[in-house]
Deep mutational scan, measured.
Amino acid sequence: SEFQINEQVLASWSDSRFYPAKVTAVNKDGTYTVKFYDGVVQTVKHIHVKA
C-alpha cells in the first residue's frame, strides 16, 4: 500500500523489529525515507513499512 509524507507508520529496524516512524519522503524507486522517534533517518523498502 502507498504511504504519504508525514504519515505515522511502523518501519523495520536492523533487528527486524518494527518501530514507530514518520514518512519523510516517498522515493521513485519504491522506497520510503522514514524518521524514527529517536531522530534516526533511514531509507527502507516498502515491504519494511506497515501501518
Rank of each mutant, 00 (worst) to 15 (best):
A11T: 03
Q42G: 11
V26G: 01
W13H: 09
V34N: 00
V26M: 07
V49A: 08
K28N: 11
F36C: 06
S14E: 10
D15C: 12
K22A: 08
Q8G: 06
Y32D: 00
Q4A: 11
E2I: 13
K45N: 11
R17P: 11
V44K: 03
Y19K: 09
T31I: 02
E2M: 14
T31Q: 01
E7Q: 14
V34C: 03
D38I: 08
K45G: 11
S1W: 12
I47H: 14
K22F: 13
K45M: 13
W13Q: 08
H48P: 02
F18T: 02
T43Q: 07
A11H: 02
E7S: 08
V40S: 15
V41W: 06
S14D: 13
W13N: 07
Y37N: 10
S12D: 02
T43Y: 05
N27A: 03
P20S: 05
K45P: 13
H46D: 12
S16N: 14
E2Q: 14
K45A: 13
Y37R: 08
Y32E: 00
A25F: 08
S1P: 13
I5H: 04
I5F: 05
V34P: 00
T24H: 04
E2N: 12
V40Q: 14
P20V: 09
Y37G: 07
V44C: 09
V34L: 06
K50L: 13
G30H: 03
V44T: 03
K22T: 15
K35T: 12
Q42D: 06
V44P: 02
S16L: 08
V49Q: 06
V40A: 12
Y37W: 14
V26E: 01
V23H: 00
N6H: 09
V9G: 01
A51F: 09
V34F: 03
S14F: 10
F36W: 06
G30N: 05
Y19W: 10
Y37P: 06
T43H: 07
R17Y: 09
V34M: 01
V41A: 03
S14C: 13
S14Y: 09
W13T: 07
A51N: 08
V26P: 00
K28P: 14
E7H: 05
Q42L: 13
D15K: 04
S16W: 07
S14V: 11
E7Y: 04
P20Y: 09
D15H: 07
A21Q: 00
S12N: 05
S14Q: 12
K50G: 05
A51H: 13
D29Q: 01
F3T: 03
A25C: 08
K28I: 10
N6I: 06
L10C: 15
Q8W: 15
T33R: 05
R17V: 12
A51R: 13
S1I: 12
T33D: 10
Y32K: 00
K50V: 10
L10D: 03
G30M: 05
N6F: 09
K50C: 11
A25K: 10
G39S: 05
T43F: 08
F18P: 01
E7C: 09
N6E: 07
S1F: 14
V44R: 04
A11M: 04
A11Y: 03
V9I: 08
A21N: 01
V44F: 04
K22E: 10
Q42T: 12
T31M: 03
K28A: 13
S14L: 12
A51C: 11
K45V: 08
Y32W: 05
N6M: 06
Q8K: 11
I47Y: 11
S16F: 07
Y32I: 11
T31E: 02
K35E: 15
T33F: 04
V9S: 01
A11P: 00
S16D: 12
W13D: 05
H46T: 12
